[in-house]
Structures are given as structure tokens and as C-alpha cells.
Design a binder for these strands. Structure first.
Length: 854
RNA sequence: GCGGGCGUGGUGAAAUUGGUAAACACAACAGACUUAAAAUCUGUCGGCCGUUAGGCCUUGCCGGUUCAAGUCCGGCCGCCCGCACCA
């Protein structure tokens, strides 16, 4: 008997699929489309296990939907701009383009060995002018629409990558790639007006029913809508007002001071003539924004000596402090402080000995005898603010009102007085897209001393990246380039320079899904193609992009719609986020990380085995997919990825698990070979009138098809695998011979091949071929379960006495209640448990359970 | 601090959404085949008691609802993730 030769087999079918262009698709108005997309990779060098899982999941969906008759678009490409290319080029003394293209070749070859059903004719690499010229045009269109603008502002500066980062790219105060603490810098930058869509991006989340709740909540929090009021406080030293934002206007009578951010215009102006204040502002700016820095930071302030008038109490003047806990980037960069209702304000008030006026009483105390004592005690002794809603006190016309009603009335009054207005505030800020790096898409702008920032005329697009640059020195290579940046102003014709910043690389990934619809178009994409293919029906990728790529793409699609490119708002109708691939970690006695191989070489007594963690180079717990595919084949690797854990959960990589998947592949193949002669002899179709084990096995086949179909619809791949294994276990045990049995056997093997096809496509093709077919199983329709075979004649019903399980009985399906009761009461173990008592009640759940209550 | 998720055998997990807990695997142990090993096959495999029949206990902990709770409700404990001086 021959062992399953995956090497030959897999290569053979991959070639057949290629030669036949099996997975090439075109628009077909007669077929329903289905667009499956996995987040395209950055060509970092080699594929890793995360890719293998991601693309396996996508391929199962793609092949399954294809078998169900959908016109499936399943493309692949390369997110090819990015900083690692520059770093690698410096290290290897090569060029980012060469490094990138070489990696693409390597990784494409690796992906090919996985047997993925891509339409490779649609492959794109975002670093080519054929791709990025379209986004230069998009940018110019955004500019015309007012969706892109340039602004001098405080930005996040990554001192390692020497570039600016967007807010979304700063994680716990550090650069998302470099991990270096981010510095604040004032620079002139290009922004995209994502805030124009704050409300829509938030509201439409509710309609993304096929997105994980978790991702929707993360985006909701990131957009951060809050309702409150803007209030204008008149300054006593001049005619100007200090504008603040608050979500608790109902606590306005508890105001005891004002606090402004260090970079607030008032503070900066005063600092020009006040070195002490200037020093304080410097100190605030130097403060880190990491978790540790914030937690340890003390509330500090600087009294400006300026005062404002309370909008409702003319006699009350409040001092303005510059405070280190007020952010310039949120609201107006200024607040009124109500120490009784806010912990930070209270800390600050106690430190600088400012008044604490409780203006909200807890609901259960308000109006009772205890109230006054509580208020008095709070004003002098409280160290914990009362931040809940309650009943307004010490608040003139608000007294006695519940907080929400008090808010409403305060806003009304402020609006009447012209001292403020109700507003909605968002946390989301505009997307800064300028990067001071070479390996990205040039921003198509020319800077002219007279005309300012002038768009590059469309007929001069693309603005191509120059190839001859010197990397490795500090600063942007494009800025240093001797000739590239020098040009003439399109507007006045005088000498001018090009914008030397490039786009954030999230720009490319914000529209690539649309380019795939029409990858060779002279335009970005034709409207008819995106109308047919978009939105993506199922998008699959890592959770780490929950508020980066996934939010940018939602915004970008809206912006493209408003510029007439396409007709949809939401790019991804369905989203699945996969868990990480984890592996045990190993350390030697000195605490040095060891690879699994090194750990084995050193021996168990010298190695500390750590917990299973995400595969990473630094922990050395990575397993190379190429090695696994080379040793066991793609089908084994794919099966393992799907077997044990649901897609959204982390997956523990174990050698034993892979061995198990490998054994299963071999077992299935052996079973096919063992039964081949019997099935070849049986040319007859399955006929009716079956009984015994032949009928039983046929029932199980159809039940499995039915169950697997449901599992695949719900992405329960691990359950689908378990059910298929159960079926193959039963088929192995099925030894009956004869015409009818072999006809059933043949049907069973054909259906099995079809349901394993999405997961293990090479084995499925080989089985299909071994069963005498000359077609491709990839072109076969999904099997249909015969409904009449899904229902059994008898059912096993559990018998309980007082809710305790006592045994089971076999009953005809849907038998009447009296029969169920009678047979349950006749069961020996039930009789023993009842012990002669008279049943008080018997509960019969048809086909499921009988519970005797005594 | 705010928001979300999770907690089931030695391990990954499953449980028709309130109805036979542990399907399917991995590991382990025992056996068959073999000169031997690998491969393969067979059996055992939540805990305790019992030769068997069977019994008792068991889904992080405590309580509740129900004929019936892994599943629902209340309160704890623990772990993980996201956001965070957001006014």
C-alpha cells in the first residue's frame, strides 16, 4: 500500500488549477457575487503562521461559497510601502524597491504552496506607480472637496522612525512599530477630515451586524461621542471670553476655578512675559503620556492671576489656572472645575486650597434630614468626588432637579443668555497622513513661495518616487535629493519645490479592496466593477486593526463616495477577526530565550518552560510555515489551523497537534485506497429500501453534510472538522459488502471528498480522481443532504427522577406522551429511584426527556 | 478609573441556546503486529466507592429562579483584551 505522497499530489493539483485558470473570475450578472478578502500582507520577507491561519480561513470560505454557486472574488496582493524596507535597504546596502520585490517573489511562492484559490491575475503591489497614481488623484479630489487640508499642529513624533504618527498609531504613548516613547512636535502636516464623518461612522456601526461586537465597541470608544455644553466665561481683564467644554453643565454652580491646557493660547501669550509660567509649560509638555507617567503624575497648576465671571452669579469671579491635566487636543483645551463632581478637580482643589461646593446630592439622601450633614461634611472633608448623577443642590434655579433635567435647563438658560450652547463632542481627531519617509507614495503638492501649496495638475500624475536616493542619513531622503524636489509652480511658473513628505501607508490599504474589483483598470477602478463586487462580503484579519485600518477604510470609502468614485459607504459587510498563533516559550538558566529546537537540545532539566505566548521573533517561539508545509504538506497545515480552536480564539501551536492532523490525512487516503476496488465494482446508483447498517451509515453521511454546511455558514470550522472525523471513523468501521452497500459507500466517499474540499483541497481532488472522476472537485457543486435521511425513526430519550438522570429509553420519534411516561416508569433504574412513591408530576419534553417528580 | 470578554478533564475544546456535561482530538497508560524500532491497529482514560450491577460527586466560589442550570438572575474571586488626566 502506498503512503500518501503529498509532495507530488499537492504540486500536481496546484498546477492543474493554474493551467485551467480555475479561480479566475469575471463579473457575471447572472450569478450572485461573493467577495472574500483576507487582509493583504506586508512583504516583510517570509510568510509566518499568522498568515497561514488567515489565508486558510479565507480559502475555506472562498471554496465553500464557490461550491455553493456564488461567483467568488478572492484576490491577493501586497501592502508594499513601509519603513522596514528602508531599514533593510540600509542594512543590506540595497534599495527598498529591490528588497520589497524580492520579498514579494519569495512570499508569493510560499503562498502558492498552500493551494489557495486566488485569482492571481488581480495581484497588486501598492508601491507601483500603476497603483499609487490613483491615490494621488484621490487626494487631489479630497482637496477639492475640502476633505484634505494642511495645518500647523502639535503632532506625535517618533524619534526612532524619524516621522510623524497618527493618533491611532500611538499605543500607550509609544510608536506602534518602533515602541519608542512619542514626543510632541509642532509641524505643518496634511490631514484628512475623518471628523466630517464622526457621526455617520458611529451610527452606521449598528448596521454592521456581521462584525464582531468587540470591534464595533472599540470603534465606538475611539470615536468617543459625548453630549454636553460649550460655556463662555467673560474675562475680567478684557472683553474676551474663555470658552470651555463640559459634559456636566448641571454642576456649573459648583465651579471653583478654571483650568486651561499648557498650550492654550492664553497660557502661551502670558508665558512670553513670564519665565516662571514658561518653565511650567515646558514641564507639562515634557510629561509622558504613557500609563505609568499619567498615574504617577501629580496634579499641578499655575495661577495666571486672570479671572472670569460666572455666567449665572455675577458677583462670583473664578481664577484661571494652567493645569497639567488639561489636554489641548480635546474640547476647547479649557475646563471649568467643579471639585465636588470630578476627582481631578477635587485633587487639585485640595492641593491649592480652593473651594469645594457640593452641587449634586445622592438620590437616597436628597431631601432627607441627613442631607445637610452630608453636604457639610463633603465640603470640608471629601477626598473622593461624587461623580454620579443625583439631585441638584446649592444651585439656585436647578435645586431639586435630577441631573439630566438640570442639564437640559442649564443649557436652555445659557442659550437664552448667550453664554453657551448644547453641543456634541467627539474624541476622534483628523487623520494626519504626512510621513517624513522615502518609501511611500509622494504627496502630489508643489510648494510655491508666492502661491502656497499648489496641487500637482492631474495630467502630471503620477508624481513618481525617484529611484536614486541616499538612505541612512538622518532626515527625509526626498528632502535631501538634489534634483527631484525642484520644479516650477504650476500656477505662476516660478521655481518651486515639491512636497517631500509621503502618505501614511494606511492610505494604500484604505482602498485596495476596491482596486481588486478592477485591478488592471486605467482608472482607480471602474464604477461598474465596484458596483458589482463591493462591498467585501467577508473580510478576515487580525484584531490589531480594529481602530486603524478598519476605521480608515470606512472613512475612505465615504470620502470616495462623496467624490463620485463609488456608491457605498461601508466597505466590509462581514468581518471575522482571527486569534493569534501561540507557542510555548523556553528559557535557559540565564534567562535567555531559546528556540524550540535549542530547548530540546539542551534537555528538560536545564530549560524553563514558559507559558504559551504569541509567536514572536524576540521570544524565539516561532515555527516556520515553510518547514511545516515541506514536512507534512499544505493540507495538514490547513487542517491543523482549523481543527482545535474557533477562528477568533488564540491557537496553540503544538508539534503533536500537527502530527495528529498529518495522521488523519494519511488515514483518509488509506481508507480510499482500501475501498477503491469495492467502489469501482459498484456502478449502480444508491436505491431506496435500505436497512440495517447500510441505512445507518447513509443517514450519518447525510446528517454530516447537513451539519457541516451549518458549521461552515457560521465559521465553526473546528466543529465541522470534528463532525467529519466522526464520519470517517464510522466509514472505517463500516465493513459491509454487496451492491447496495458499495453504492452507499461510493456516495459516502464522494460526499466526504466534497465536504473536506474547502479545508483540504489537494486531498479532495485526489480522492475525487481516485473515485474515477475526470472533472475537478473544485468545480463540483456543494452536496445536498436528503432531508428524509436527517430524521430518525427512533430517538433516545433521557429519563430523570427529580431532575436526576437515571437512564435512557428508545422511543419512536414523536410518540405520544402516555407512551413516553409508561416506558419511563418501567425503566429499572427509574423504578429504583422512585422507590414506590407516587409521582406528583411527570414532565415530558418530546423526543428529549422525561422527568418524574416524586 | 471606564468599556468588553472569559473561567468546563492532564491539554485544545464540544454541548441542538434551559433538557443525557465532556462530542472530536492531543497527551498518557495497556495490549496486538515486529528480532527491534517507526508506522498502523485495539482497549482504558473527570474524581471517589464497588469484583460486577450500580451509586455518590463534578462546569472558578456563594446564593437564587426552575420539574430541570455549564447555560438565566444577584453577589464575590481570578485571568485576558481595548481605551484612558477625554472634562
Amino acid at each position: 500500500m502506498s503512503r500518501y505522497n503529498f509532495k507530488e499530489t499537492e504540486a500536481k493539483w496546484q498546477k492543474v488549477w493554474d493551467d485551467n485558470a480555475t479561480f479566475k473570475v469575471t463579473e457575471d450578472s447572472h450569478k450572485e457575487k461573493y467577495y472574500v478578502l483576507e487582509m493583504f500582507p506586508y512583504p516583510s520577507g517570509r510568510i509566518h503562521m499568522g498568515h497561514v491561519r488567515n489565508y486558510t480561513l479565507g480559502d475555506v470560505v472562498a471554496r465553500y461559497k464557490r461550491a455553493q454557486g456564488f461567483n467568488v472574488l478572492h484576490p491577493m496582493g501586497w501592502d508594499a510601502f513601509g519603513l522596514p524596507a528602508e531599514n533593510a535597504a540600509i542594512q543590506n546596502n540595497s534599495h527598498p524597491a529591490e528588497w520589497t520585490m524580492h520579498n514579494i517573489d519569495t512570499m508569493k511562492a510560499q503562498l502558492k504552496t498552500m493551494g489557495l484559490s486566488y485569482d492571481w491575475d488581480r495581484e497588486i503591489a501598492t508601491c507601483t506607480p500603476e497603483y499609487y497614481k490613483h491615490e494621488q488623484k484621490m487626494f487631489l479630489d479630497f482637496l477639492k472637496k475640502g476633505l484634505a487640508y494642511k495645518k500647523e499642529s502639535w503632532v506625535n513624533w517618533d524619534p526612532v522612525e524619524h516621522t510623524v504618527l497618527a493618533n491611532e498609531q500611538v499605543i500607550d504613548g509609544k510608536g506602534w512599530r518602533s515602541g519608542a516613547p512619542v514626543e510632541k512636535k509642532q509641524l505643518s502636516q496634511w490631514f484628512l477630515k475623518i471628523t466630517a464623518y464622526s457621526d455617520d461612522l458611529l451610527e452606521e456601526l449598528d448596521r454592521l451586524k456581521r462584525w464582531p461586537e468587540k470591534v464595533r465597541i472599540m470603534q465606538e470608544n475611539w470615536i468617543g461621542r459625548s453630549e454636553g455644553a460649550r460655556v463662555f466665561f467673560r474675562r475680567t481683564d478684557c472683553d474676551e471670553v474663555l470658552e470651555i467644554y463640559t459634559t456636566r453643565p448641571d454642576t456649573l454652580f459648583g465651579a471653583s476655578f478654571m483650568a486651561i491646557a499648557a498650550n492654550h493660547p492664553i497660557a502661551l501669550e502670558l508665558a512670553q512675559n513670564n519665565t516662571e509660567l514658561d518653565a511650567f509649560i515646558q514641564e507639562c509638555n515634557a510629561l509622558g503620556t504613557s500609563e505609568a507617567a499619567i498615574e504617577s503624575a501629580e496634579k499641578k497648576g499655575f495661577d495666571t492671576g486672570l479671572k472670569v465671571k460666572h455666567p449665572f452669579i455675577d458677583s462670583l469671579e473664578l481664577p484661571i489656572y494652567v493645569a497639567n491635566f488639561v489636554l489641548m487636543e480635546y474640547g476647547t483645551g479649557a475646563i471649568f472645575a467643579c471639585p465636588a463632581g470630578d476627582q481631578r478637580d477635587l485633587d487639585f482643589a485640595r492641593k491649592y486650597d480652593l473651594p469645594v461646593i457640593p452641587v449634586v446630592a445622592p438620590k437616597d439622601i436628597a431631601g432627607t434630614d441627613e442631607e445637610q450633614a452630608w453636604l457639610d461634611d463633603f465640603a470640608t472633608n471629601a477626598t473622593e468626588a461624587f461623580t454620579d448623577e443625583g439631585i441638584a443642590v446649592n444651585s439656585e434655579f436647578l435645586n431639586g432637579l435630577a441631573s439630566h433635567e438640570a442639564k437640559r435647563q442649564v443649557i436652555e438658560k445659557l442659550e437664552v443668555l448667550g453664554s453657551g450652547q448644547g453641543t456634541v463632542q467627539y474624541r476622534l481627531r483628523d487623520w494626519g497622513i504626512s510621513r517624513q519617509r522615502y518609501w511611500g507614495c509622494p504627496i502630489p503638492i508643489i510648494l510655491c513661495a508666492d502661491c502656497g501649496a499648489v496641487p500637482v495638475p492631474e495630467d502630471q500624475l503620477p508624481v513618481e518616487l525617484p529611484h536614486d536616493v541616499s538612505l541612512g542619513e538622518a532626515g527625509n531622503p526626498l528632502d535631501r535629493h538634489p534634483t527631484w524636489k525642484h520644479t516650477t509652480c504650476p500656477s505662476c511658473g516660478k521655481p518651486a519645490t515639491r512636497e517631500t513628505d509621503t502618505f501614511d501607508t494606511f492610505f494604500e490599504s484604505s482602498w485596495y479592496f476596491a482596486r481588486f474589483a478592477d485591478a488592471r483598470s486605467e482608472q482607480a477602478f471602474s464604477k461598474s466593477a465596484v458596483d458589482y463586487w463591493l462591498p467585501v462580503d467577508q473580510y478576515i484579519g487580525g484584531i490589531e486593526h480594529a481602530v486603524l485600518h478598519l476605521l480608515y477604510s470606512r472613512f475612505f470609502t465615504r470620502a470616495l463616495k462623496d467624490c463620485g468614485y463609488l456608491n457605498i459607504k461601508e466597505p466590509f459587510a462581514g468581518l471575522m477577526t482571527q486569534g493569534m498563533i501561540c507557542h510555548e516559550t523556553y528559557q535557559d538558566p540565564d534567562g535567555k530565550w531559546l528556540t524550540p529546537d535549542e530547548a530540546e537540545g539542551l534537555g528538560p532539566e536545564k530549560v524553563t518552560v514558559g507559558r504559551s505566548e504569541k509567536m514572536s521573533k524576540s521570544k524565539k517561539n516561532v515555527v516556520d510555515p515553510e518547514l511545516i508545509i515541506g514536512t507534512y504538506g499544505a493540507d495538514t497545515a490547513r487542517l491543523f489551523m482549523l481543527s482545535d480552536s474557533p477562528p477568533d480564539r488564540d491557537l496553540d501551536w503544538t508539534d503533536a497537534g500537527v502530527e495528529g492532523a498529518w495522521r488523519y490525512v494519511g488515514r483518509v487516503w488509506r481508507m480510499v485506497e482500501d475501498n477503491q476496488s469495492r467502489m469501482a465494482a459498484s456502478g449502480t446508483p444508491v436505491s431506496g429500501g435500505l436497512d440495517g447498517d447500510v441505512l445507518a451509515i447513509r443517514r450519518q453521511v447525510h446528517k454530516t453534510v447537513h451539519a457541516v454546511t451549518g458549521d461552515l455558514d457560521n465559521f465553526h470550522f473546528n466543529k465541522a472538522v470534528a463532525r467529519i472525523r466522526e464520519l470517517t471513523n464510522a466509514l472505517e468501521a463500516f465493513k459491509t459488502d454487496g451492491g447496495a452497500a458499495n453504492a452507499v459507500r461510493r456516495e459516502a466517499f464522494e460526499m466526504t471528498a466534497k465536504i473536506i474540499n474547502p479545508m483540504m483541497p489537494h486531498l479532495a481532488e485526489e480522492m475525487w480522481h481516485a473515485l474515477g472522476h475526470h472533472s475537478l472537485i473544485a468545480d463540483e457543486p456543494w452536496p445536498q443532504a436528503d432531508p428524509s435521511l436527517l430524521i430518525d425513526d427512533t430517538v433516545t430519550v433521557a429519563v430523570q427522577v427529580n431532575g436526576k438522570m437515571r437512564g435512557t429509553i428508545e422511543l419512536p420519534k414523536d410518540c405520544d406522551q402516555s407512551q413516553a411516561e409508561a416506558e419511563a416508569l418501567a425503566l429499572d433504574t427509574a423504578v429504583a429511584a422512585i422507590a414506590g412513591k407516587t409521582p406528583r408530576k411527570i414532565i415530558v419534553v418530546p423526543n428529549r426527556i422525561v422527568n418524574v417528580v416524586v
